[in-house]
Design a binder for these strands. Structure first.
Length: 840
RNA sequence: GCCCCUGUGGCGGAAUUGGUAGACGCGCUCGACUCAAAAUCGAGUUUCUUACGAAGUGCCGGUUCGAGUCCGGCCAGGGGUACCA
């Protein structure tokens, strides 16, 4: 006899303990079975698990459990992306130590993940802030340095002149510092860089091999890497004694150039500023504001005429030289030839400063004089008003200009990449210390490997803004490993994206004395299925691909691509609640807010709060929901089922409470059905047997495609069919199959019912049900009958009926005849097993 | 600004990839059971129309015997934009 109701508050813990005890989910690196590495992006320990995590890890868990049922040795690990800014913010706001705050959060969140019953190999858990992890990272960083992949250069940061500290882009709001409210400036610092551009071509080519990745991610990375062919050439000064190197991707439009523009920190601009106060002021003005591309691109186009003139290489005409705030020193040569007719930024600039806007490309030669309709035309066409280029198409003209420039010796065709080297310096405490020492005599010296890890000091002060490592009284004082003299440690720490660029290798193998064992890593890599948010489509995934290649080049690895298949889940979204407090926006969690009609108020003080847009749940906006309450009320299986139902996993999921209750009811409904399993029942139910086998095949296909919402719908259908069926051997088979198919999704219920059915062992170790291919095909099909493409009737026909038979059946329909109304039939289209369309 | 994605009933979505639009679930309505409620079970649920039927997949246009699906042009929302993770 089984209990009336399934009680998750007892069953969840019972089976979680049973899995732990049996060590079901610990991966064996020496197994003879086929390997399967299933990985979800590890979480930042922000405090508590949120719904987005639950969705992500439930998907991975279903796949991991399914692959185990299919006989694979599965590696499904979990750990913590534990360095980052929120820990320092907590230290400043609450006076807690970043380490204590982080490890407390990890303990809480690990407990929450355990409550969800995930099939994780906890024996491999680590946090990136463990010195045993970041110490190995320091060693790898030194290896990359020795391979010439690490260097230092000056680079701009967001500088808060009041707090005297570097701000993250996120901390710059409308050009002002988030705490001080001061206007942010760009400031140059000497920083550490990784030579990702060395691998630009390879990272681009590698995308073609990643068949298991979504096309949209490959497209985004392709555009990000941004390979472009163009022309680099010199303009010669006519009233000054220098040349200006420019780069353009549109050499075909060279006859449309009406001015030249240089970046504010271009050497020409600086030289002009030396003698012109006006230019110096303008350059200072360009320093205002933050460093993000979005900010630079949308800022008002500003320029200053330097008075310098250069000669057009073909016409000899004099063009003015401007300093412009929209030209970037980092891209190309830091100077451009501006063609206002065919580049929108140049168009806006020329309009503002009254510069000519000639047309050199048109839809046809006849439209050579057509005026512009208020914006630049960057599309294809035929060259006009362009001397020897007139009449050519854009591609031919590009080739011709490059050929002439090279023949005449004033320019050359070049490839330029949008991708820039990866700046990894952070002027912060809670990150991996960069393992280098600055010595007055020896310069920059790496810390010898036997002195690693360089450990963060624990006694740090967060009462004032700025980098605590820089002002720590003793930490940076050390001796030079080369000369033994007094020297200082580097106080910058590494970007946290470095931590997440190799954690999947450490999960596969974690010896104490080195980052990983090459042979053991080779057992598991590449990751067979990587699952994470679409927001990581570019940065994290590109950095991890680069780091893997860099480790391959330095002899640590064989594999080039870390992630064979990628699935990008949609984000869980929720509206944002906030209130203005001076210069700062204060955010509130949905739990702190009372939603009333179309308004909202804060529970604590009853005052109104502003309802913002529905956006991805994030710690900084506090629009997060705590899953623990729902687990307590409905059990882990209902929550897991809810995460998989309805919304396609790649799509955003707007969070709502509605629906979870239905999932709780379905858990009980399944439990009742499982209770009706009757070992003594005999007899066959052909229709149910067919439905069962069709479902097994379809659910397997859906899970492999990560189409969980479709698998769920099919399980509902089979449940309904089995409920309506009379007891029989076929029904027993349906029930048993249903239990096994549901087990990756509702593992606790499945174990409990399996046990109640008298089965021995764990469902977690059971095999996926077999399919009888003979039962997959239907012998009758429904045919749609259309007249002029409109549905007039449906009819039933044997599968595989001939075209003539179907046509005859269709014409025999009274509905069809009425619709045709005696008109002559011109054509009949028959799609076998699907439809007949009659055209009159 | 630029790159990428998404848009289908009251809601989440399905549609064998050009072939019956709305599977399945949520919600709602009605009914059964009950003294009553919960739970459970059954029926209904795109819109308009008394009906025949017509319209309908963000908007406008195109290709096709046939378009949610393909093409062109828009609109709206979201993600990324190199120091949020």
């Amino acid at each position: 006899m089984t209990a009336e109701r399934f009680d998750p508050s007892v069953a969840d813990r019972r089976w979680q303990a049973a899995w732990d005890e049996a060590r079901c989910f610990e991966a064996d690196s020496n197994s003879a079975k086929p390997k399967s590495y299933v990985l979800e992006m590890f979480p930042y320990p922000s405090g508590r698990i949120h719904i987005g995590h639950v969705r992500n890890y439930t998907m991975g868990d279903v796949l991991a459990r399914y692959r185990r049922m299919r006989g694979d040795e599965v590696l499904h690990p979990m750990g913590w992306d534990a360095f980052g800014m929120p820990a320092e913010n907590a230290a400043m706001e609450k006076g807690v130590h970043p380490a204590g705050w982080t490890y407390d959060n990890i303990a809480t969140m690990k407990g929450q993940l355990k409550q969800l019953g995930f099939a994780l190999d906890w024996s491999r858990e680590f946090a990136t802030c463990d010195p045993s992890y970041y110490g190995h990272e320091q060693a790898l960083f030194v290896d990359l340095y020795e391979a010439g992949l690490v260097y230092r250069k000056e680079s701009e940061v967001n500088w808060d002149p009041v707090d005297m500290t570097v701000l993250a882009n996120e901390q710059v709001i409308d050009g002002k510092g988030w705490r001080s409210g001061a206007e942010v400036e760009k400031r140059k610092l000497n920083q550490w860089f990784l030579k990702i551009t060395d691998f630009a071509e390879d990272l681009l080519d590698g995308l073609d091999t990643l068949d298991g990745w979504p096309d949209k991610v490959r497209t985004m990375q392709t555009n990000w890497i941004g390979k472009s062919q163009g022309l680099e050439f010199r303009f010669v000064g006519t009233n000054f004694d220098e040349t200006i190197e420019v780069y353009t991707t549109r050499p075909d439009t060279i006859f449309g150039a009406s001015f030249v523009a240089v970046a504010a920190d271009h050497p020409i601009a600086r030289a002009v500023a030396d003698t012109s106060a006006e230019a110096a002021d303008f350059i200072a003005l360009c320093k205002k504001g933050g460093t993000t591309a979005a900010e630079l691109e949308t800022a008002e186009k500003l320029g200053l005429d330097t008075g310098l003139k250069v000669a057009h290489p073909f016409t000899g005409a004099e063009l003015p030289v401007y300093i412009a705030n929209f030209v970037l020193m980092d891209y190309g040569t830091g100077a451009i030839m501006a063609v206002p007719g065919h580049d929108q930024r140049d168009f806006e600039f020329a309009t503002k400063y009254g510069l000519p806007i000639p047309r050199v490309v048109a839809a046809s030669a006849e439209e050579a004089g057509k005026p512009f309709a208020g914006e630049a035309e960057s599309g294809d066409g035929v060259l006009v008003n362009s001397d020897f280029l007139s009449g050519m198409d854009v591609e031919a003209a590009k080739t011709e200009v490059i050929a002439r420039a090279e023949a005449e010796g004033w320019g050359k065709g070049t490839t330029v990449w949008r991708l820039r080297d990866w700046g990894v310096s952070r002027q912060r405490y809670w990150g991996t210390p960069i393992p280098f020492i600055h010595c007055d005599g020896c310069g920059v010296v790496s810390v010898p490997k036997d002195q690693l890890p360089v450990v963060l000091p624990e006694d740090v002060d967060f009462s004032v803004p700025g980098n605590p490592l820089l002002r720590h009284p003793t930490w940076k004082n050390t001796t030079c490993p080369k000369c033994g003299g007094a020297a200082e440690r580097e106080t910058d720490t590494l970007d946290t994206f470095v931590n997440s660029s190799w954690y999947f290798l450490r999960f596969a193998s974690q010896p104490a004395d080195k980052p990983f064992d090459a042979a053991e890593v080779a057992q598991w890599m590449p990751v067979d299925q990587y699952i994470g948010g679409i927001e990581h489509a570019i940065l994290h995934l590109l950095y991890a691909r680069f780091w893997t290649r860099a480790l391959a080049r330095t002899g640590h690895l064989e594999v080039q691509e870390p992630f064979a298949s990628l699935f990008t889940q949609g984000m869980v979204t929720h509206e944002v609640y906030s209130r203005q407090d001076g210069p700062r926006e204060l955010y509130f969690t949905p739990a702190e807010v009372e939603r009333t009609g179309n308004g909202a108020s804060l529970k604590a003080d009853g005052g109104p709060v502003t309802i913002g847009k529905v956006v991805k749940m994030s710690k900084s906006k506090k629009n997060v929901v705590d899953p623990e309450d729902i687990i307590r009320d409905y059990g882990a299986d209902a929550v897991r089922w809810f995460m998989l139902s309805d919304s396609p996993p790649e799509r955003d999921l707007p969070w709502s409470e509605a629906g979870i209750e239905g999932c709780g009811r379905f858990v009980q409904r399944l439990w009742r059905l499982f209770g009706r399993y009757d070992a003594a029942a005999t007899g066959e139910d052909k229709a149910l047997a067919r439905k069962t086998h069709q479902t097994i095949a379809a659910v397997a296909e859906d899970i492999e495609a990560l189409a969980f919402n479709k698998a769920v719908a099919r399980l509902y259908e089979l449940t309904s069919a089995a409920e309506k069926a009379a007891p029989s051997a076929s029904r027993n088979h349906a029930i048993r199959s249903l239990l096994l198919m549901a087990s990756p999704m509702m593992p606790h219920l499945a174990e409990e019912a399996w046990h109640a059915m008298g089965e021995s062992g764990l469902v977690a170790d059971a095999a996926w049900p077999e399919v009888d291919p003979a039962l997959l095909v239907e012998d009758e099909v429904t045919i749609a009958v259309q007249h002029m493409g409109k549905l007039r009737d449906t009819l039933t026909a044997p599968k595989g009926a001939s075209k003539d038979d179907l046509e005859a059946l269709a014409l025999a329909s009274a509905n069809v005849q009425r619709s045709i109304d005696g008109k002559p039939i011109r054509k009949v289209i028959v799609v076998p097993d699907r439809l007949v369309n009659i055209v009159t």
